[in-house]
Write a protein that binds this DNA or RNA. Structure first.
Lengths: 109, 109
DNA sequence: TTCCTTAATCGTAATTTTACGATAAATGTT
DNA sequence: AACATTTATCGTAAAATTACGATTAAGGAA
């Protein structure tokens, strides 16, 4: 079926999974790392940074944008992308809390 | 094509993406949260906790196990699962570093 | 041994993802 | 206006994901 039954899970579980899934491809990690490294809007250079075709990169950018992790603003003929701080912090907190919630004590196997 | 060109990216990018992808489904988040909550080996109760069939849950468990995030030990007729601490901490660090690497200063759009 | 329980695997189907070339749309330049 | 640049979208194909029922495998209980 390929379609997750999102209605069966909590809003938080769906949200965490949605954000993690958006980060679940090396190209998108590369895009994020590039945006973080330059630490400002990046206009037009992203395609050149990736070993993928322009259309494929555009698709990955769209997925990151749909997930809310980045945002793009039109700047003349090109588009400038940067990290979307609000969702970025939400992802940081949700995933951070998940990782923090585990304690190695009582681990029996 | 559905196949990511993992050879085009760095080992770190692939590793982060691989771990994030494993967390990219609400059922797997639910499994992880359940294991974290009980904070010990969970034997046989996982299927009952999820709104999915036994075979589907088994498939999700396998993906988490393949990613290294959980481990299962055979305990009589059932299998006990728990968080795999080593990979869990690796994921925590890799994703943690990624989220920490972003600073909202100089954000222009 | 026979039965029951538990979990993995198989087979299958629908959907999504990944990827690329080609095309379209939008803006700036000459 | 004509052209070049940049990015999104369309069309397509291959592969992966998700899901379930049915079956298999393994261990414990009667």
């Amino acid at each position: 079926m390929g379609l997750s039954k999102i209605e069966k899970f909590t809003a938080e579980q769906n949200e965490i999974a949605r954000l993690a899934k958006a980060l679940g491809h090396p190209a998108r990690i590369a895009i994020i790392q590039f945006l973080v490294k330059t630490n400002s809007c990046v206009c037009g250079d992203i395609v050149d940074e990736l070993p993928l075709s322009q259309s494929t990169v555009s698709q990955h950018l769209k997925e990151l944008k749909t997930a809310g992790l980045i945002k793009g603003t039109i700047e003349g003929p090109s588009v400038c992308y940067c990290i979307n701080e609000v969702t970025w912090l939400k992802a940081k907190n949700l995933l951070g809390d998940l990782f923090e919630s585990y304690s190695s004590k009582n681990n029996c196997c």
